[in-house]
Every structure is written in C-alpha cells, then in structure tokens.
Design a protein around this nucleic acid. Structure first.
Length: 579
RNA sequence: GCGCCUGUAGCUCAGCUGGAUAGAGCAACUGCCUUCUAAGCAGUGGGUCAGGAGUUCGAAUCUCUUCAGGCGCGCCA
C-alpha cells in the first residue's frame, strides 16, 4: 500500500517544474510515508511535501494541496487530504483497509517477516561469560538481548549466526582449577586464598570429581608457608606450584571443572530459551609458540604489514590511528600474549569467516575496549564499520524492595538460574528487554510476579488469552471450523478499525526494531495493541454480536492474537492461552 | 583529567534518522462485574521535555555550552 503510494509520489515530484533528478533523489532519501499514529489523520500519511519544500524552496502547504488533488484524481483512495503544515493524509478504500486481515490469515506466524530473505550475513556474539562460575543476572540481560536481536534480524531477512566465545585459556581458568584442587585437598582444609573462587559450585565440582574420577589430592602443607601477602601474587604462586607438583591431576581437574561449568552454563541458557550455533573456544586459537596456530598467524600478519612493532621488548599495536588513546601491547616483554592478542586473533577469525556484519554484545564496563578492537580490525585490513558493539548495562534486581546482591567471587549470589526458577524464563526475558539495553535497568522481581496491570508481561499475555478463549467459544458455536474470509465481511462495521489499524503497523515495527537493534520497541508496541484489545473487549460483548458483524470481529481479533503471538516470539516468549 | 551513557508528570519509563495538541503505567480521586477471563475498562487532575544559546518553516529529537547522576580508563581477564 505504501509502496504504491510512493510510486505516485515520484510521479508527482517529476511533475514539479524545476525539480531535477538529483533533487528527487535527495527527497526520496529523506521523506517517509507511514501508517498514521491514529485514525484521526487517515490511514497513511506522508511528509514528502515538507521535505520537498525545504529542498526546492517552495511552500509546503501549497505543495501538499497539489499532491492531494493529484492523488484524489486517481480515485484509488477513499480520500486524500492536505493537513497541518504540509502533510498529505490518505484514507484507504474500505476493502483495501480490511485487506490486512487476509494477509495475516494467510501468512500466520510469518506475518511481519520480510519476504525477501537475501539479507546480510550477520554474526552475533553474546554472553561469552568466562567459564569460571554460573551465569549471573547481568549475563541474563545480555543473553536475552542477543537472542532477541538475532530473532528480529532473522525476521527482517538477515542470515544470523549466534556465537559464544569461551575464554578457556587464560589465568582465570587456572584460578578455577586451583580453587577446585584446594577443595579436593584432604590434608589442609582451612587454607583457602582470598582470590580463589569461593562459591558452593566449586565444592560441588570437587565432590563430583572425587566420585567420578576417584581422585585423591594431598597437597604438602609446606607449600602454603611462604606465599606472598599480595592476593594476586599469592594465587599466581599457588597456581604454578600446584601445576608443577601435581601436573597430571591438574590437567584432569582443569578439564573436568571447565566441562562441568560449561555444561551448567549451556543448561541455564537452554532453560532460558537461548541457543547458540557456535561455541568458539579461545584455546582453539592456539598459542604463539605454535607457528601453525591462528594466534601466531594473526600477530605475524600484523607485524608483516607493519601494523605491529617491537618496543621495550614487547610487541605493540598502534591503535591510536582509530581513536584509541594509547598504543596497546599484544605480546609482553616476557613473551606471553595479552588478552588483547587473543581477541585480535579471534576477531581475525571472525573477519575471515566473511560476515557482512559482526555484532558484539558486551557488558557496558567493556566500553573502553571498543576502540582497540576496531583498531585491530582496521589493522587487519577490514573496515571498522563492520563491527557493531552493543553495550548492555548491568541490571539491578530488587526483591521485597531491597537490592539483590550478585558478585561472583564471594560465594553467595543471585544467579540467572535463581531468576529463572523465581519468575520463569518468559517473564525474565520480558523484563530484561523492557528497557533499552544500554541503560541501567531496575528489575523488580515482585512486580514481575504481581497480578496487576503494572505487570505489562501479564497484561499482554492476558490479551492473548482472552482472544484465544473467545475463538474457542466461537468455533464451538459455529458449524464450520474455518473462518470465512473476505467477501463475508460487513464492511460498514467500524468498531474494529482501531485494532485493524494498529496491527497493520506491525511489519514496520519489526523493521524499525531490526534497524535500530532495539527489541523494546516490540514490547511497547504489544502493550499498546493489548490496551486497544482490552478496551474493545470491555465495550463489546463479542459472542452476542449480530452474526453479520461477527465474522469481521472474529477475524480482527484473531489477527490481533496472531500479531501478539508473532511479536512475543521475536523476543523469545511463548504466548499464554489460558491465564 | 579523558572517553561513553543518562537527565521527559510525584514515581518507573516510551517518544530521539526533526514534523500535527509531548504519551503510557503506577500513585491520588470517581465510576463499571446477574452476560464471552475485573491479571480488565472508562474518566479527572498532574509537564519551564535539567538550564542556556544556536541551526530550521518547524526542536523533547540536531549542534555548542553549563549543571547533575552513572560507568570506564592495566604489559588484569
């Protein structure tokens, strides 16, 4: 409908005296024809005259009157009016307005998705929490967000691949291994370093190893005598000593711990309805000593291309070129690679996989890291615009009006698993996504469980359930199971118009949500739609309506339910059929 | 000090690629259940869109600036 209008608008622009091809191009770029906010301005509106007027130095009001006349003469619309400062408002013919119902009945679950599936190949990397403990509620927000934009971009026609980057090679894994090993230690129960992981899950892993592997560890207590007072040094000394003295056990414990934590993470995500296409291990990048590794290759490429250089015994990358505030070390003067070097190698691998766009979903505390990753992508010879980093702010959880604690090192914290058990995966996802991802979120657990209108999650679900129940009752009453479409409508029945107009906006909401990577637009749209539904439901006793109106009503409601269901599925939530 | 984010009704937030009288929920007050799910609906009051300047036919939206709040600035990961 809008495309057809825009074609007529192009005809109009061409008919304006002194309007060059170039001007038309600029105007086409800038104006927009959209579905109106509400029916008081017709069904479709265009601001083309105001845009054209400012470029061509003409009077917008006069232009809009001309355009309205020209469109009226085509007699394909019920009514075209010039309005306000230069809008052109279009009222569709009745059958055209109602045709959206047929479209929805035809497309069903696919309504709102782009027909053209030849979009970009996009990789979204998200969560990527270090496998040193259970996921906390901060990770939950990233998981909900990454998964939602994956679904939304897919609906908008992109080919999306979801990836989790596992940091299984760094010092933190050593700390994990040491922590478990100390818990396994028979001979000295009371020694536990400050910087080791203290959670209960460490003890669980230790217990499981003991049972599964029949592993006994006895650490010579002399080891604990001469450790550094500095907690960082202390844990490093322990790690290297434990590795040396119990190397065989070390490797077994490391492997076992890592796998059990990864399994629990995967399990938490599964129960949160989040899945990944690729689990990418940092360790698969290999290490610098191996000249066949990806790690070696990426650093070598940077050096060969003159992007990385040697200074003070270390290898540096000039990241200032891309706006970073200082150069960054890739390889330390002792020959060990930095975390940054791994990330460069990882991003080289991503670039080599030929995605059109790389979306990284990071915790907001990593924002200082963006510039240097962009710089490394440019140094590797690609455009930094290919990388889109979306930051997700931390969420504060409130329970009984009090802030819920969540730190990983101290054992006691509220995990994603706790959240899922508490309010269910759907409500959790819903509230995570109810505010823009890059802003602080106060997550009220009591609200998410409450049964008032303030709980928008149930407000929307309730709208869906009400329609579902009506449809069931309607089908029981009528002999034919199929709802008749099209010519059976009583087109003069107007009470459903607000609903029909609202659902016709849905495809553009999906597109906007995809273009801006803002899933919350879907939520706010569904809330508005639900509000109209509840209002309609209260004003009209559907099943006792005149039979000649009933088909249109049921078809409208059915379409509303379909749109709610489709919208919810974009944010990974299943609709409820019965409250 | 530098960088990023934020400031809209008493509270929690939408709206931000400039567009028509700035919206919603909560809270306050008033109505609506002998009929399909009241986890609902209808109504009333409530605003210098943090302050200032600029661009524009038009600014909550763009630019500059001031103020206030949050976060980040390791050869840690």
């Amino acid at each position: 409908m809008i495309n057809a209008l825009n074609k007529e608008i192009t005809v109009f622009l061409n008919s304006i005296e002194g309007c060059s091809k170039k001007s038309i191009e600029i105007i086409n770029e800038k104006y927009s024809s959209t579905i109106t906010d509400d029916l008081s301005n017709g069904h479709i509106t265009s601001n083309v005259c105001m845009v054209a007027a400012s470029i061509l130095k003409l009077n917008p009001k006069e232009l809009s009157i001309q355009l309205a006349k020209q469109l009226n003469d085509l007699s394909i619309y019920e009514k075209v009016e010039a309005a306000g400062p230069g809008f052109v408002n279009i009222t569709l013919k009745r059958n055209d307005f109602l045709s959206i119902l047929e479209t929805i009945q035809d497309k069903k679950d696919f309504f709102g998705q782009t027909d053209n599936k030849s979009g970009d190949k996009i990789q979204i990397e998200f969560v990527s929490a270090n496998p040193t403990g259970p996921l906390h509620v901060g990770h939950g927000r990233g998981a909900a967000y990454g998964d939602a934009i994956a679904r939304i971009l897919t609906a908008a026609g992109s080919k999306v691949e979801k990836e989790y980057y596992i940091n299984d090679a760094g010092r933190q894994i050593d700390i994990l291994t040491a922590s478990v090993m100390l818990r396994l230690n028979k001979s000295n129960d009371d020694f536990f370093p400050q910087n080791a992981y203290k959670g209960l899950y460490i003890e669980d892993i230790a217990t499981n190893i003991k049972n599964d592997k029949k592993l006994e560890i006895k650490i010579d207590s002399s080891l604990f005598l001469n450790l550094s007072k500095d907690p960082e040094e202390e844990i490093d000394q322990l790690i290297s000593a434990l590795k040396d003295r119990n190397n065989k056990e070390w490797l077994i414990i490391k492997d076992f711990s890592l796998n059990s934590i990864l399994k629990s993470i995967e399990n938490d995500l599964k129960d949160f309805n989040v899945s990944f296409d690729v689990w990418f291990k940092e360790s698969s990048l290999g290490n610098l000593a191996d000249n066949k590794s990806k790690m070696y290759a990426s650093i070598k490429k940077l050096q060969d291309d003159g992007e990385a250089y040697l200074k003070d015994g270390a290898v540096w990358l000039n990241t200032e070129k891309s706006g970073d505030d200082k150069h960054r070390v890739l390889i330390r003067d002792d020959g060990r690679a930095t975390y940054f070097a791994s990330d460069v190698a990882y991003h080289k691998d991503k670039v080599d996989r030929k995605f059109d766009k790389l979306i990284n979903v990071w915790g907001a505390d990593h924002h200082g890291y963006i510039k240097r990753i962009e710089a490394s992508i440019e140094a590797l010879g690609d455009k930094k615009e290919k990388l889109i980093v979306k930051l997700v702010q931390f969420a504060n959880l409130f329970k009984n009006g009090k802030k819920v604690k969540m730190s990983t090192r101290s054992g006691d914290f509220y995990s994603l698993r706790d959240l899922i058990n508490d309010i269910g995966p759907d409500a959790a996802r819903f509230y995570y996504l109810s505010k823009q991802a890059d802003q602080h979120l106060d997550f009220d657990l009591d609200l998410a469980k409450s049964d008032s209108k303030e709980n928008i999650f149930y407000y929307i679900q309730y709208a869906h359930a009400r329609i579902f129940s009506l449809e069931e009752k309607y089908h029981q009453k009528t002999t034919s199971k199929e709802i008749n479409r099209g010519d059976g409508y009583n087109a003069s029945y107007l009470k459903c118009d607000k609903l029909i107009h609202e659902i016709s906006k849905y495809p553009s909401i999906v597109n906007k949500s995809a273009a801006t990577l803002h899933p919350h637009l879907i939520i706010f749209y569904l809330r508005d739609l639900s509000q109209l539904l509840h209002s309609f439901y209260n004003d009209n006793h559907v099943l006792s309506e005149d039979p000649e109106n009933l088909e249109l009503i049921i078809s409208s409601l059915s379409s509303v339910r379909q749109v709610i269901s489709n919208g919810l599925s974009l944010i990974g939530i299943s609709p409820i059929q019965e409250m």
